[in-house]
C-alpha cells in the first residue's frame, strides 16, 4: 500500500539547512498497524505528513496505492487524500465553531456526498463510537477523550484505506488513552491500515510493527514480538 524509496526532506531557512528525513525507505502493506517511534525532532511527524500527503518530500519516491505521488500538486494530493486517508491528531484539531455532527460531516462534504447520505453515515459512525448523544455539542463542551473520539469518527467516516494518527493519546489520561487505542485496534481489525506516531511504548504495543527513527533515518524495524522480547529482557 505504501512504499518509500530514499525519502528525504530538507528544511531550509536563509542560514540553516536541516535534514528532517534522510533517505528513508520502507514498505507498509494493506491492513498493517505500524507505530513510528523515536525521540523528539527525529522526523516522525515529518514522515507522517509526507505519508499523509500533507507535504511533498525534497527527494526520493513515495508510492501510495501503486501511484508515485512525490511530485503531486497540492490539488492532486488533496484529491487523493480525501478519498483514502483519515487523520487523528494529538490535539484533536476539531473546528471549535462546528458541532460534533458538523465536524464529522466535513470530509463527506468535500467528497460531495448528498445531505441524506452524510446524515446516515455520520450517525452510523457516531453510534459506533458511542458519542451520538453528543452530536449537537461543540468541541469545547466535551472532555479530551470525547474530543478524540469525535476526531476518530471524523477520520473514519469516509471509510479511508489508511488512518494516520499523530500521538493520538498524547493529551489524554490513561483511561481515555486506552479507549482511543482500542478504537484504533478495532478499526485495524476491520481492515483499515493504521500508521501511528507515538512516544508511548504502551500505545506502540497495539501495533504489529514498529519503525524506529533517529536523526531522520530508520534505525530498526521490529516485529512487535521482537519488540516485546526486547523490552522484557
Amino acid at each position: 500500500m505504501i512504499k518509500t524509496v530514499d525519502l528525504t526532506k530538507i528544511f531550509r531557512t536563509e542560514e540553516v539547512e536541516t535534514t528532517a528525513l534522510n533517505q528513508v525507505s520502507f514498505e507498509i502493506k494493506e491492513g498493517e498497524f505500524v507505530a513510528i517511534m523515536g525521540p523528539s525532532g527525529c522526523g516522525k511527524s515529518t514522515l507522517l505528513n509526507i505519508l499523509g500527503l500533507l507535504d511533498n518530500p525534497s527527494s526520493g519516491k513515495y508510492y501510495f496505492l501503486e501511484n508515485e505521488v512525490s511530485k503531486f500538486s497540492e490539488k492532486q494530493r488533496a484529491n487523493l487524500r480525501k478519498r483514502n486517508i483519515g487523520f487523528v491528531f494529538q490535539n484533536f484539531n476539531l473546528i471549535d465553531e462546528l458541532s460534533v455532527f458538523e465536524n464529522v460531516e466535513l470530509p463527506l462534504i468535500y467528497l460531495g456526498y448528498s445531505s441524506s447520505e452524510r446524515k446516515k453515515r455520520v450517525e452510523e459512525v457516531l453510534e459506533q463510537m458511542q458519542i451520538m448523544h453528543r452530536r449537537n455539542h461543540f468541541p469545547l463542551q466535551l472532555s479530551g477523550g470525547q474530543q478524540q473520539r469525535v476526531a476518530v469518527c471524523r477520520a473514519v467516516v469516509a471509510k479511508p484505506h489508511l488512518i494516520l494518527a499523530d500521538e493520538p493519546t498524547g493529551n489524554l489520561d490513561s483511561t481515555h488513552g486506552d479507549e482511543v487505542m482500542n478504537l484504533l485496534e478495532s478499526l485495524n481489525k476491520s481492515g483499515t491500515t493504521i500508521i501511528m506516531v507515538t512516544h508511548s511504548h504502551r500505545d506502540a504495543s497495539y501495533a504489529q510493527r514498529i519503525v524506529r527513527l533517529f536523526d531522520g533515518q530508520i534505525v530498526t524495524e521490529d516485529k512487535i514480538t521482537d519488540f516485546a522480547l526486547a523490552t522484557s529482557s
Binding site: L54, R83, N93, L94
Partner: peptide, 16 residues
C-alpha cells in the same frame, strides 16, 4: 488557522 488546516486535511481544495 486550525479550521483551515483541518478543512484542507479532510479534503478541501484551495478554491473551495
Amino acid at each position: 488557522a486550525r479550521e483551515i488546516a483541518m478543512r484542507k486535511v479532510t479534503g478541501a481544495t484551495r478554491s473551495q
